[in-house]
Design a protein around this nucleic acid. Structure first.
Lengths: 198, 198
DNA sequence: TTTTAGGTGAATCATTTGATTAAATCAAAT
DNA sequence: ATTTGATTTAATCAAATGATTCACCTAAAA
């Protein structure tokens, strides 16, 4: 077989990533994906057998994108607490700016299918054994690491989730939103530090 | 007509609230709602004409629940900045504890239909004219009210959005989550205050 | 050149799903 | 008792949708 100009399987996956993350599993039609990929509908089933199988492949990818940011950082004992916070915030905001649909997609699909996907081994177990908890305890034993992490992620991720509301108001555009988030990259570590002084 | 034991229209709406907020518009079948309401499918169309009309009714309700919490507080000039923060946090957490599906539902449905629903007049316009911005400026002119609000809401609401992840880990149950949020009711105002000292 | 095997697409199938229809029920008014 | 108008239901429709079929193509191997 000669090399295809564009690998068909990858072309379908690219389309699937776009449509699934935009509209979610239930609202996505396999025909939408086929059209976006500029291929015939049967091709999709030929390559991936079913909508659900294709979805699972994309979902696994997206979960890794979403959780992959934080895991290596919180376990890296070479990084100080301050450096960890800076890196988590910067990496998350950076990554989601490039992939704005990711948070709502991941969080709402997990919700609709909480059993599947090996998130069990996920972030929380990881957190308990990380060097992050030790460093938090050293800094301020009163602050529960769970609260600490919820604060960082809440401040970093929530703006993206509420973005449609801000945009609907007409007071915000893409440009303005992006610079808002660039500002937060700098400010959130400062604010987080302040919460540890309490 | 004799008084019905349970008003049929209201019975359908109760079922619709439950199913729509749990599964979202696209994943909801009108048959699911009919079954949940313990009525025939055609009844649903008899009372509400279509799935979309029924959905719009529920959606309006849910938007009011979601945004109704914050509007009266940020415009109330009798409340101090500290009181405002306390009330926003407490009211949001209180309300969402009773209606855990609300945040993801509202935020993801808005995202899938950003034009509809008069959110335009929404929170942001309200914010610009509120007494909150004045009070923030008095306290610390460096802090943008938008950042301030995103921090409060992010810290209060994000935990509910990420709850399915925490639960999947098996380290958390309903009980534990609830007491975590009760703790945050007390702590978030303290943390927010700390961010204003920077 | 012929064969072979993977790749491709038009047409079609079976099921799901939102919506409609027409008949039945039931209580109150006449 | 009959009529009336509001509810309620079983049956069915038409469109949407996930999936399959089968014929055809293409390029490499024999």
């Amino acid at each position: 077989m000669v090399t295809k100009l564009v690998d068909t399987e990858e072309k379908i996956k690219i389309a699937a990533r776009k449509i699934f993350t935009q509209k979610g599993y239930a609202a996505t039609r396999t025909r939408d994906i086929a059209e976006e990929a500029d291929i015939n509908l049967s091709l999709l089933n030929y390559y991936f057998r079913s909508k659900e199988k294709l979805f699972n492949i994309i979902m696994i990818e997206k979960l890794q994108e979403f959780f992959g940011v934080i895991s290596p950082i919180i376990t890296d004992f070479r990084l100080s607490l301050e450096e960890k916070v800076e890196k988590i915030v910067e990496n998350y905001i950076e990554m989601i700016l490039k992939n704005p649909d990711l948070p709502i997609f991941v969080l709402s699909e997990i919700r609709h299918n909480p059993k599947n996907f090996g998130i069990k081994m996920g972030v929380l177990h990881l957190l308990s054994n990380s060097s992050l908890v030790v460093q938090i305890a050293e800094k301020n034993s009163k602050v529960d690491p769970i609260h600490f992490l919820l604060n960082i992620l809440g401040m970093s991720i929530f703006p993206f989730i509420s973005k449609p509301i801000m945009m609907a108001g007409g007071l915000f555009d893409e440009e303005k939103f992006k610079s808002l988030m660039e500002e937060r990259k700098r400010l959130i570590p400062i604010w987080i530090k302040a919460t540890l002084e309490t």
